[in-house]
Amino acid sequence: MATEAHAEGATGYIIHHLTSLSVGEGFWTLNLDTLFFSAVLGALFVWFFKMAADKATAGVPGLVQIFAEMLIEFVDTQVKDSFHGKNKLIAPLALTIFCWVFLWNFMDLFPVDILPLIGSLMGIEYLRVVPSTDLNATFAMSISVFCLIIFYSIKIKGPWGFAKELMFQPFGPWLLPFNLLLKLVEEIAKPISLALRLFGNLYAGELIFILIALLPWYLQPVLSFPWAIFHILIITLQAFIFMVLTIVYLSMAHEDH
């Protein structure tokens, strides 16, 4: 496949950029680049916040602590705005999602060829550096959130309460099959829309960066600079949307009708 990609010029270049470094066959394929970069970024996030948390004082905070607290405060406000129950998981979950997704997306701002070039110098054929352009990464997160939604729905409303909600709402017991169908679609749409929204935005963004990289060199800065600026907005917004929707879905799971 590698030789094919090289042979086909522009299309080959694009395909090469969007092919993951993977091992294994069929379902048991592992996208090593996605796993590696998301783990590194996760470690970066955890390291930064742990550093801030270790030095956390109620007195005059340092720069690291101020930054961390700013994010904490921001996430906490979002959580308090839409979630009124008591749950120790939601705020840390939201913080993790926001920071991690943001860092994933941020990889998009690296020039498209730099990391693959370094990779190829080290003998790595394919390298996709933005984890959020991998459906596995976005779906892993949204499915985890989906599991939490189901878990809390059952925990708060009870199995029977949750089942009743699925069967008797919104149209009452006489339209049970219709209710059930509607509710199931509604629930399943949550993780799918979460994952696809993030994936779609970042995949498209990355694709445009790759397309720009195919243009003559003197045109590239003119196009990639404004697109990168615009992308700063997009990557933050997508991280924010993922976080807020997670909070909203979980608070819906906590609402007992």
Binding site: S22, G24, G26, F27, W28, T29, L30, N31, T34, L35, S38, A39, G42, F45, V46, L89, P92, L93, T96, W100, P131, D134, L135, N136, A137, F139, A140, M141, I143, S144
Partner: peptide, 17 residues
């Protein structure tokens, strides 16, 4: 395509959270 990366990512995510 969806593959085992999903599971690895879910584990990482769970650990991070």
């Amino acid at each position: 395509s969806i593959n085992a990366t999903l599971i690895g990512q879910m584990i990482t995510f769970a650990l991070l959270v």
